[in-house]
Design a protein around this nucleic acid. Structure first.
Lengths: 187, 187
DNA sequence: ATCATTTATTGACTTTGGTCAACGAAAAGT
DNA sequence: ACTTTTCGTTGACCAAAGTCAATAAATGAT
C-alpha cells in the first residue's frame, strides 16, 4: 500500500489526512490465475492498483482475441473507458498470474474528489499521464513497422517479454504469431 | 467565445464568475494559411480553441511528414504532450485554412486551476476526454486495416474528407497516397 | 512418467501495401 | 492565358504480413 502512496507522491504531495482518507477506500482482493477482474458487458466501476500478479486487457474481434494491454505489479488496472463513461465494457480483464490488488470504487473516488482538492488534482494528473502513454503507443502504431514495434518492446520492457507467451505479445503488437516468430528468426 | 462556454457546459457547470475569469485569460489571434502555430523544438505553452480555420498536427520522420491530427472549428488545438510535460515539441502545428483562435497560456490555466475548483475539475474532464479520443484511435490502428480505417473516416467525418487533400488523409491513416487512391478505386 | 493440449516454428502460397515511374488533371504563380 | 508545380491515378514490380498446414517443442493434467 505504501507502494501506492509513493506512486502518487511522484505526481503530487498528499497530506497524511488526505492519504488516510484515500487508503480507507482501498479494498484488498485476491484473484487466481485465469479468473476475470472484468468481463464483457459489465461496467467497470473501479480502479485497482496491482500489488502482485499480471493481467491482460483484451477483447474479441471476429472470434479472435485482441490484446490491448498488460498490467503488472505497480500498474493501475481498470477499463478506463468504461470507468469514465459508465458504458458497458467491450473488454475482458483476465488474470495471467495470481494477483493481489487494491481496489477503489468509482463512487468512493468521486467522493474523494469532492472532499480533497489535491485528490481531484491527482485525478487530473493521472488522466494526463494515461493520455501520454496511449498517445505514445498510437504514435508507434502510426509510424513504425511491426518489426520496429517489437524491438522497441525488447528494449523497453524485458519483463513483458519474459512473462507473457509469444502469441499474446503478437496480439499486443497487432500481428499474427507466425509473423512474430519470423521477425525473431530473421537476423 | 460563447462557443467555448457551451463546449465547457457539456462537461461541467461554471458560475458566471468562473467563466469570466477564464474568459479574461483568452487571447484572440489570427493566423494566415501556411503559418505555424508551433514549430519543432518549441515548447507548447498554450491551449487554443479554434474559432475558425483548419490546422494539421504533424512531424517529420526520415524526411517524410507524418500527420497525426487535424483540428477544425470547435476543436482544441495544442501539442498536449509538450503542454503537459514542458518538453520541446517534435511536432509542427500548421495552418491549412486561415484561422482565428483563442489562446490560453499554461501559466494562466494553472492559476485558474488554483483559483477555482470547478476549473481544475474541468481540466480533469478534458484530459479524460482526450484520453478517450486517442484510445479510440489507437484501437482503430490496432484492429483495423487501412481500408477499414478509411471507411470509418468516410462515415464519421465527411468534413475532413472534403477539406483535406488526399495525400494528407493518407498520411493521417498511416498509408501511402497511392494506396489510398487504390482503396478508393476498388469499388 | 505419460498423455493430451497448447504454443512456437517452418514451408508454400496468397493478399495487401510499398516503391518507382509515367501521365493527366488540378491548382498556384506569373 | 500560360507556365510551373503539385496532386491524384494507374501500371509493373517488390516486400512484408496473412493464411493454411505440418511438425516440433513446451506445458499441463492425470
Amino acid at each position: 500500500m505504501q507502494q501506492i502512496r509513493s506512486y502518487f507522491s511522484k505526481l503530487i504531495k498528499l497530506t497524511d489526512q488526505e492519504w488516510a482518507d484515500y487508503a480507507d477506500c482501498l479494498v484488498k482482493e485476491r484473484y487466481p490465475k485465469k479468473s476475470f477482474l472484468l468481463e464483457e458487458g459489465g461496467s467497470c466501476d473501479f480502479i485497482a492498483f496491482v500489488e502482485e500478479g499480471v493481467f491482460r486487457f483484451y477483447h474479441e474481434v471476429e472470434g479472435e482475441e485482441m490484446i490491448t494491454a498488460f498490467f503488472f505489479s505497480g500498474d493501475f488496472v481498470t477499463n478506463y473507458r468504461s470507468f469514465l463513461t459508465g458504458a458497458p465494457s467491450e473488454h475482458y480483464i483476465q488474470v495471467l498470474q495470481d494477483a493481489t490488488i487494491y481496489k477503489i470504487s468509482k463512487k468512493d473516488l468521486h467522493d474523494l474528489y469532492d472532499k480533497h482538492r489535491s485528490i481531484e488534482r491527482l485525478g487530473r494528473l493521472i488522466a494526463e499521464n494515461l493520455y501520454l502513454m496511449v498517445a505514445k503507443r498510437l504514435d508507434a502504431f502510426h509510424s513504425s513497422s511491426p518489426e520496429e514495434r517489437y524491438y522497441d518492446l525488447v528494449n523497453r520492457n524485458s519483463k513483458l517479454l519474459q512473462e507473457i507467451p509469444q502469441y499474446m505479445i503478437a496480439s499486443y503488437l497487432g500481428i499474427k504469431p507466425e509473423t512474430l516468430s519470423r521477425i525473431r528468426a530473421r537476423k
